[in-house]
Nucleic acid binder design. Structure first.
Lengths: 145, 145
DNA sequence: ATGCTGGTATTCACCCATAAACATTTTCTT
DNA sequence: AAGAAAATGTTTATGGGTGAATACCAGCAT
């Protein structure tokens, strides 16, 4: 299970160090794709497979479902970690997530997320720092700690 | 089950002594994460697992749920007690809970909570001194001792 | 009152992850 | 085919996390 927050930087060649704690669980091959909220999702191969199955089961007669599925598959790229523990992020994805130099990498349960440092800060100011508001919304899910 | 209130201090490297009464129950590995009300939660491994299952089951198509899940997982760090009875608190978490030198550690049933001494004082002044008002509100939950 | 013991704080030194600089290979272009 | 540019690989220095050793303190019992 992935968790934690790490700060790294992308080098001039678009490579990014993956936190050493994530490497083993990601394994040899994994999938980087466009994520929700303008970040990138990184799935280990088996997690990607389960996600793929779920996506497949969506009714492809509905326009929204088609768009959602296209979003994930078109944005996906198979990737691997080099001997220095880095991955190369395709430029399309770099642009999508507005990745410049400073990058935040977080573990979120079954996936890893890659954020532009600036966007992560914005996102947190909008949601994460205001945990009370989130907790309030969670009532809808009848969630308890 | 955790209970009690203890005063300790964080050293220059961000390490904190865990009260000896908590050590056995926390076990070898446990998880420290951002908690509600600006404190940190410390869960024994098995408690964290049950929490994780609940978090995983939340619909990731809902923005609020994503924010909530990110909040917990990105704020989480696996930790262990060193031979001196201390744990290392990641700087992200130290900042979140505004932990300076003086720290209050309390046991709350299934988890341990770590508070900045100042915030704990504030919190108690804001709420704790008015137990009767809180108890009054508890009626809504049909709670009885 | 004094010495003992368990727990706590501080200091220091080492090791590893990271990131930047550098070197090499490959590919594309002219 | 040769040179340039891009991609990939290697090396090294630095800083931070980590562990050990020592010094400190309080509580307790004799």
């Amino acid at each position: 299970m992935f968790m934690g927050e790490y700060q790294h930087s992308i080098d001039a060649k678009g490579r990014l160090i993956i936190p050493s704690k994530f490497r083993q669980e990601l394994g040899e091959n994994f999938v980087v794709t466009k994520g929700l909220d303008r970040c990138l999702f990184v799935y280990p191969w088996n997690e990607w497979n389960t996600l793929e199955k779920k996506l497949k089961s969506l009714p492809f007669t509905k326009a929204d479902a088609r768009a959602f599925v296209r979003f994930f598959f078109s944005g996906a790229a198979e990737s691997e970690i080099d001997k220095q523990g880095r991955i190369l992020i395709p430029s399309v994805l770099r642009e999508y997530a507005k990745l410049e130099k400073d990058v935040i990498i977080i573990g979120v349960s079954t996936r890893v997320e890659i954020w532009s440092s600036a966007l992560w800060k914005e996102y947190n100011e909008a949601t994460g720092n205001d945990y009370e508001a989130i907790a309030e919304k969670m009532k809808d899910f009848e969630f308890e700690l």
